[in-house]
């Protein structure tokens, strides 16, 4: 196949060989190539530079790039592991790998902890949980009195903050989610099992000879 395809993929800064990415993740080579189809469509939606910026990420999630969302922002920052302000293809595949149904449970628990540890101090603090609750309420136009928000926080910290120091550390988090497995639901995307049927056009753009592997 050839030069034409290779030249095309060089326009994607941070593009990595699907065989290499498959060897590092739960994805097959075909699945990595199918993810590239998704990556191409998101990364070209505003600026066709082969990278996903925050506006493009929010556009893919909300169908509008202007809508700022605390949670989408936080996920973007966790995908952008090199903190470049953009997500390249390697970042995209490795981050989505955590959401694969076959990814290790510990990786999901760890990613989710980082997601909620907004300022990255290694603890989920009460003020962070309050900030997230307020963001959720404004997003859903749900109104709750401050006393209700505080009572939700009281109950949550009674359950999750075993040493009652006002913040949830990693061990407390692991223990808390083991008793509340529903909290890990957002960390698994069943879609990732069917990625090759969702994006079948990867077959026409494949650079790998035996795409079944």
């Amino acid at each position: 196949m050839g030069c034409f395809q290779s030249k095309g993929r060089r326009q994607f800064p941070g593009y990595e060989d699907p065989v290499f990415l498959a060897s590092q993740t739960a994805f097959t080579v075909s699945e990595v190539e199918a993810l590239f189809e998704l990556f191409k469509s998101i990364s070209s939606s505003v600026i066709d530079d082969g990278l996903i910026n925050k506006e493009e990420f929010q556009l893919a999630l909300f169908k509008t790039g202007k809508k700022e969302n605390l949670f989408a922002n936080r996920i973007f920052n966790l995908f952008d592991v090199k903190q470049k302000g953009v997500i390249d293809f390697g970042d995209f595949v490795r981050a989505l790998n955590v959401f694969h149904p076959n990814a290790p449970h510990e990786d999901k628990v760890d990613f989710c902890f980082k997601l909620y540890d907004l300022d990255g101090t290694g603890f989920i603090e009460r003020k962070e949980v309050k900030q997230m609750l307020i963001a959720l309420l404004s997003e859903s136009e749900m109104r709750l009195a401050d006393e209700v928000v505080e009572s939700i926080l009281d109950k949550t910290f009674q359950e999750a903050d075993a040493n009652q120091d006002g913040k949830i550390d990693k061990t407390e988090w692991e223990n808390f989610v083991s008793h509340n497995p529903s909290l890990m639901k957002i960390m698994t995307l069943p879609y990732l099992r069917d990625i090759t049927t969702t994006f079948p056009s990867f077959v026409f753009h494949s650079e790998v000879e035996d795409i079944a592997t």
Binding site: F71, L133, L136, E139, I152, N180, I186, T198
Partner: peptide
């Protein structure tokens, strides 16, 4: 006495956390 929900159960319903939407055409 009203049932008080867990904060993280509420937070995890945010649309911004639903990456599944990326795969819905």
């Amino acid at each position: 006495r009203p049932v008080v929900m867990n904060a993280f159960d509420l937070i995890s319903t945010s649309q911004g956390l639903d990456l599944g939407i990326l795969f819905e055409k």
